[in-house]
Amino acid sequence: MSADRPDAVTPDAVAPAPTVPAPTVPAALSRAPVADVALVATFAAFLVVCTVLLALPVPGGSVPVTLQTFAVMLAGVLLGPRRGALAVLLYLVVGFAGLPVFAQGRGGLAVLGAASAGYLLAFVPGAAAAGWLTRLRRVPRTWLPAVVLGATTAATVLVVYPIGIAVMAARTGLSAGEAIVAGAAFLPFDVVKNVLVAIVAAAVFRAFPDMLERR
């Protein structure tokens, strides 16, 4: 690097100026735009694994509760509003294109015809809202999980539910009241999953503190 400085008095200074830029130090690589692409793609893949492979054990429950909404909110909190929403969008696009990445190995454009399509589409602004509400840089470490829990639950109830319930009502001919009752059945599960988001996000920020700086 010193060879680029005109005032540097080194033996190199008399040599012709190097035409090749000095190699970047590894620490700077994580801030390159392509690092964002890697994070976005990896979190979209994490969404696939959480939805298709991992399931929350529910005592006495026969319906598998996937960790899809967990991964959506985690992407928003860890990556921030922009990259988090892009990760969810990438996941949806790959699913709509026909790969079986949705709950119970479903995929393709058929999921857009189903009554629950609004929830899937609402995950994009939902992740963005979760990321936007968690401006965590100035939050004391001990308060971090509580802030994440509040923000993700607000994003779930104020962004994901209204869109999901509105589409469900439009597609099924249910009244607003009936649709809200049907949609509210998910709330306990989603709160449990947001508690998990808070625990996991705190652990990830402990492991990679610089992720708090650039979200």
Partner: peptide
């Protein structure tokens, strides 16, 4: 289950990005 899975996913993303 989820803490190590998420931490390792982030670690992998950063290695791939680098």
């Amino acid at each position: 289950l989820l803490v190590p899975a998420a931490v390792r996913a982030v670690g992998r993303a950063r290695l791939v990005g680098d």
